[in-house]
């Protein structure tokens, strides 16, 4: 019985009625041991310092969909930037201080006639510079296989029921490109500035599994 605080001895449930999670004390996996061994060797040999490792993890954790939202809002307000973004996503993002590194960014535009959806069927390629870490569902076999087989059904499960006149274009991120969806600018946003527009841009709208918020 959820949230029943009269009795704190439900079988396997916490006082608030939720199941206890088992402790995470199983043995390290092969790859966890490899990571620790390689990291300790790099530190012992003076190639990196523990502070540098911590700083890099912090930098990776700090990346979030706010970066991508800033890019989208700029494209909505600056037609010349939008042209550059669609022509060469990596260079345009670099202008804004977002470096996608050795990978190349392809930006695909949603219009009244086209809706784009991004997936990586082979693994979980994702534009982390712009969106941070991928959501767990993006890495599941269910999303990776179904997004290419039945994208419209998947989109309906995300709450997005596309009209018949819209063509769906699925992009399978199989090699050196990363993909960002440029969602269509919502109606009723004419007077809004870049910062206010960026607040409408959701992570899912840049993957293609959602639309921006309405103002």
């Amino acid at each position: 019985m959820p949230h029943d605080h009269h009795d704190h001895h439900h079988d396997g449930l916490s006082a608030s009625g939720h199941p206890f999670r088992s402790d995470n004390d199983e043995a390290l996996t092969y790859w966890q041991r490899m990571e620790i061994a390689a990291r300790e060797l790099l530190i012992e040999k003076g190639i990196v310092t523990p502070a540098e490792v911590a700083a890099q993890i912090d930098a990776m954790d700090a990346r979030s969909p706010a970066n991508g939202a800033a890019v989208v809002a700029r494209a909505w307000t600056d037609p010349a930037f939008k042209d550059r973004l669609l022509a060469n996503g990596s260079d345009a993002c670099r202008e804004m201080g977002f470096d996608v590194g050795a990978l190349h960014l392809v930006v695909v535009e949603n219009t009244e006639a086209v809706h784009n959806l991004i997936v990586c069927t082979l693994c979980s390629c994702y534009p982390r510079t712009l969106l941070g870490l991928p959501p767990d569902w993006y890495k599941t076999r269910a999303y990776r296989s179904r997004a290419v087989i039945e994208p419209r059904k998947v989109l309906r499960e995300f709450g997005l029921d596309l009209p018949d006149h819209v063509t769906v274009r699925v992009h399978d991120s199989t090699a050196d490109m990363r993909y960002l969806v440029l969602p269509a600018r919502p109606a009723g946003t004419d007077g809004m500035d870049e910062a206010a527009l960026a607040a409408l841009v959701t992570r899912d709208s840049m993957i293609g599994t959602g639309l921006p918020r309405q103002p």
Binding site: E150, P151, T167, T174, M177
Partner: peptide, 19 residues
């Protein structure tokens, strides 16, 4: 082309990077 008669919508498209 990809799914034949099982295609959810025949004229939707799929793009992939291929070497």
């Amino acid at each position: 082309e990809v799914w034949g008669e099982r295609a959810e919508r025949p004229d939707d498209t799929l793009d992939a990077e291929l070497y």
